[in-house]
Amino acid sequence: MPASLPIGTRGSPLALWQAEHVRDRLSAHHGPDRGAAMLKVISTSGDRIQDKPLAEFGGKGLFTKEIDEALLRGDIALAVHSMKDLPTQLPEGLCLAAVLPRADVRDAFLSPVAPSLAALPEGAVVGTSSLRRGAQVRRLRPDLKVVDFRGNVQTRLRKLAGGVADATLLAKAGLDRLGLADAATSVLSVEEMLPAVAQGAIGVVAREDDAETLALLEPLNDAATSVAVTCERAFLAELDGSCRTPIAGLAEVGAGTIRFRGLILSPGGAEWHDVEMTGPMDEAEAIGRQAGEAIRGRAGPSFLENLM
């Protein structure tokens, strides 16, 4: 692994952990004696906009745009992302080169005032920047107040400790990776809170024409995770999902089959539609697409249009 192999990443502690994890996996597969790749921190629009909801500025691509541009210019050889931040359509010339084994897909509940979401007192304030989480909270507890809660994991923990909200929700995988598992008050089951598409997975993006880097990344790809993420992202793409649409989806792979569950909600959580499909894992993309078509049919043509 050449020392000149620069890895692009955002600068948050979680993003740096993920980039270092990819670097460690590369060294484990190709040998530390061949050199250590360097990390190149790139500030993204999503990182710089902290005072307003992301939906007002274009959604998911705000966390990848500047990194994509650096990759296309050749400033970096590969980019490491939380898969749930990746738009379903990558810029021309880039490809998803590897998806690492998935971590815990569930959401963690954090609160100094209650042991669980169900136990929060009436009128309590829940902070989250995720429309998906906010809509599901409102669906489960319409009496609660949901407020926008931006920032990295550490920033949100400080806001919670400072009383900005009575509770928040964070990805369990992120807490685990940062050594902050004890910060979780409890963990929500996927039946209670369906996760974001590709939550818990780390993706590596590279240039389509960079055969050397693609070959280096190939051993990092986890087949089961890749299949599950492909299904979930096909569902999201069919619905043209972005940060403006509260959409959840989870594919589980086992014994050659894949089980997919999807959910779309109004931001207020009062209206929602779900879908479940099972089929052969080699038809993962088709299953995700069919699930998207099915849920669109149930919701009707105006449901998604009203969310855009």
Rank of each mutant, 00 (worst) to 15 (best):
M1W: 04
A3Q: 11
S4K: 06
L5R: 04
P13R: 08
L14E: 02
W17L: 07
W17C: 12
Q18S: 05
A19W: 02
A19I: 03
V22L: 06
R23F: 01
R23H: 01
D24W: 00
R25Q: 02
R25T: 00
P32N: 02
G46K: 06
D51Q: 15
K52H: 09
L54E: 15
G58N: 09
G59T: 12
G61I: 15
L62Q: 13
F63P: 10
T64G: 11
I67S: 11
E69C: 01
A70V: 00
L72F: 04
D75N: 12
L78E: 06
A79E: 02
V80G: 00
S82V: 08
S82E: 14
M83Y: 03
D85V: 13
P87V: 05
T88Q: 09
G93W: 03
L94S: 05
L94P: 07
R102H: 05
A103E: 06
D104W: 03
D104E: 08
A108C: 01
L110V: 01
S116I: 09
S116N: 11
S116Y: 09
L117D: 14
A118W: 05
A118Q: 10
E122P: 05
E122M: 06
V126Q: 14
R133V: 15
V137K: 00
R139L: 14
L140S: 15
L140F: 10
P142Y: 11
Q154K: 09
T155R: 13
R156H: 06
R158H: 12
A161P: 14
G162K: 02
V164R: 02
K172N: 08
A173Y: 07
A173N: 14
G174K: 02
L175M: 06
D176F: 04
L180W: 09
A181V: 14
D182Y: 09
T185C: 03
V187I: 15
V190E: 01
E191C: 01
E192C: 08
E192M: 07
E192F: 05
M193P: 11
M193V: 08
M193W: 05
L194K: 11
A198H: 00
A201T: 05
V204T: 07
V204Y: 05
V205C: 03
V205E: 01
D209P: 04
D210V: 03
D210Q: 02
A215C: 00
L216M: 00
L216C: 00
N221R: 13
A224D: 13
S226R: 07
T230K: 08
C231W: 04
E232G: 12
A234R: 12
L236S: 13
D240Y: 03
D240S: 07
G241L: 02
S242T: 12
T245H: 02
T245K: 01
I247R: 06
A248I: 00
G254R: 12
G254A: 10
A255E: 15
G256C: 14
T257M: 15
R259L: 13
F260N: 07
F260E: 07
L263I: 05
I264H: 10
S266R: 08
S266E: 08
P267S: 14
G279Y: 07
M281E: 13
D282P: 09
D282C: 10
E283W: 04
A284G: 06
G288H: 03
Q290V: 03
A291M: 08
E293I: 15
I295W: 00
I295G: 00
R296T: 08
R296H: 11
P301L: 09
N306E: 15
L307F: 02
